[in-house]
């Protein structure tokens, strides 16, 4: 008797659990379905049937206009170049600094690490105007340099790499050192190859963060030829298009900004999960 009711309760709670999960899965994913569907609609169809994911008729007019009538191809190119350069830069610079903080004994190491922790705690939003001031003062405002240089190293990445290097055994490096390899040589050909999982995590975080970065481009450049995709997209939405709401076009452009991260997300999901949880180690 007892067993039966327990079984019944378990079944009921599992059923309710699935209902809740499916409901929330719809809430979390349906906006993207709507986005994809409506980006292939005509403007009047999108206005009349916004909830339907099926375009009727199917129209690529929004995409044609976004590629031929706006600067989006240019922004896409800028975003790709900047994301690649920043990601590679962070991989190299953050891992070098992380390695030094974890392994090399140099004077001021503890103080430097505290400084990096403090910098991680500075809220990015209060740095908008300050960053502009410096870029303006040193004369690189409104250039590719301004988009890349200030973000090519980040405190959080250094922190992640330091944590990782501390978690691997030191014996391999010592063997290399005894064989007479210099510090950089040891780092480059012995340590870095072992750091692959951490490097992939850092790569994912950097790629996603740089690709999506908006406020930095807002305070670093003003020339539309230097816009990144999020900046250009924000510009499109805030009225540079002129007539009409043009939702299919905007949704299509937003979709193009989402696809690269979505692909990376699907391929490297477990690294995303790890990246999100790196945050909890700080606490």
């Amino acid at each position: 008797m007892t067993r039966d009711t327990t079984g019944g309760r378990t079944f009921a709670s599992t059923f309710v659990g699935y209902c809740v999960l499916i409901f929330f899965a719809l809430v979390f994913l349906y906006p993207f379905v709507i986005q994809i569907g409506n980006s292939f609609k005509t403007e009047s169809d999108a206005a009349a049937n916004p909830l339907s994911p099926f375009p009727d008729p199917v129209s690529t007019g929004g995409y044609e206009r976004v590629f031929l009538g706006t600067d989006l191809p240019l922004w896409l190119g800028n975003s790709i170049v900047i994301t690649i350069v920043v990601t590679l830069g962070r991989l190299l610079l953050d891992s070098m600094a992380g390695y030094a903080l974890a392994r090399l004994r140099f004077r001021g190491r503890a103080g430097l690490f505290s400084a990096i922790l403090a910098i991680m705690a500075v809220p990015g939003v209060v740095l908008f105007i300050p960053k502009f001031l410096v870029l303006n003062q040193i004369g690189i405002y409104n250039s590719y340099t301004a988009l890349v240089l200030p973000v090519i190293a980040d405190a959080a990445g250094v922190f992640i790499m330091k944590q990782f290097f501390e978690s691997i055994p030191v014996s391999v490096e010592e063997a290399a050192r005894i064989d007479g390899a210099g510090v950089f040589r040891t780092f480059w050909s012995v340590v870095l190859p072992m750091a692959r999982p951490a490097l992939i995590t850092l790569m994912i975080i950097s790629f996603q963060g740089t690709w999506n970065e908006f406020p930095h481009s807002l305070v670093a450049v003003q020339d539309p030829a230097l816009f990144t995709l999020p900046r250009g997209l924000a510009d499109l939405v805030s009225g540079s298009l002129g007539v009409g709401t043009q939702y299919p076009l905007k949704l299509g452009a937003a979709l193009l900004a989402t696809i690269p991260v979505a692909v990376i997300f699907v391929v490297f999901q477990r690294y995303f999960v790890r990246g999100a949880n790196e945050g909890s180690d700080k606490g």
């Binding site: 993207f32 916004p50 690709w211 997209l233 939702y247 905007k250 949704l251 991260v261 997300f265």
Partner: peptide, 30 residues
């Protein structure tokens, strides 16, 4: 699958997702 579904919005561009919500909450929107 569910874990990925709930997590996916967090990794997308805040600007792109704001555009989607502009459409979703438009006067005659979804």
């Amino acid at each position: 699958f569910f874990r990925a579904a709930f997590f996916f919005p967090s990794v997308t561009s805040s600007v792109a997702i704001s555009v989607v919500f502009l459409f979703v909450f438009a006067n005659s929107g979804a």
